[in-house]
Design a protein around this nucleic acid. Structure first.
Lengths: 133, 133
DNA sequence: TAGTAAATTTGTAATCATTACAATTTTATA
DNA sequence: TATAAAATTGTAATGATTACAAATTTACTA
């Protein structure tokens, strides 16, 4: 994955900040909040502004290369995976992991008359690590 | 449904404010925000405080007679239905409707090692009414 | 290459939902 | 009726997000 190229292909000029933010999202896969991205990158990019992180993520979402995950209020999280998938969140350690899901298995007969553009499946429980402690 | 009895059965003293707030939730079935509940009831209960609405909904959730719906950030919504079900939200008119779902149909083989305590399924699209305008 | 316009980044202030907390009011009880 | 406990209320604080204008960087053209 060449990140500058990937950004350019998606109509995003690959500025230094944008490259670093997407690189973080893509490599960490940790569904970070804006605050976590900012706190992680700020020491390495001293001029970085939190507003830039907000602006950049909004741009990524608009251009379709990032999705948002809102499981609980007061924290929007971001994900470099944009294909349909679900999320599992451990309510002990807080980790969020992507899970493949076959949405066709949901019986949506009740919804004949609507169009569905987005599906969010969030599972909340305890992860294996926290169960065995 | 006798609301004072229902509250009492669930270990909640049926004060006037609590009765009115639950009555609103239960009859409207509109997945309101705190603000909407407050704005609707305040004219009829002039002394009502928004803090009371927050306190009361937190109590309802703790006692298990209300659930929260967080589809988008910056608005927690409340639902008097607490059995497992999903939600459909129209991104034009904003209406949120409950939808029955058979969660067993989700193929969760990937999650053998975790316990799942809560499942949230949110479908976002356009409702029939907004499609035909 | 310099000069200018456009795009991007930045910092500060404003907004809005929610929570904290102490004071007041109401309810229950002795 | 007096007192304690519970519930309600209003105000202030918090924290995420947005608005916005200034500063900086980049792209383009003469």
């Amino acid at each position: 994955m060449n990140i500058p190229n990937y950004l350019a292909e998606n109509d995003i000029k690959p500025s230094y900040q944008r490259i670093r933010i997407f690189e973080y999202l893509y490599h960490e896969m940790n569904h970070p909040t804006v605050d976590l991205i900012y706190k992680t990158l700020a020491p390495e990019i001293p001029t970085l502004s939190k507003t830039t992180v907000y602006n950049t993520l909004k741009l990524f979402v608009d251009k379709g290369i990032t999705s948002t995950v809102t499981i609980e209020n007061n924290e929007v999280r971001y994900d470099a995976i944009v294909t349909h998938h679900g999320h599992f969140k451990c309510n002990v350690c807080g980790i969020i992991v992507d899970i493949p899901l076959n949405f066709n298995q949901l019986n949506l007969n009740e919804l004949k008359d609507v169009t569905i553009e987005q599906t969010q499946v969030h599972l909340i429980g305890k992860c294996n690590k926290c169960l065995t402690i």
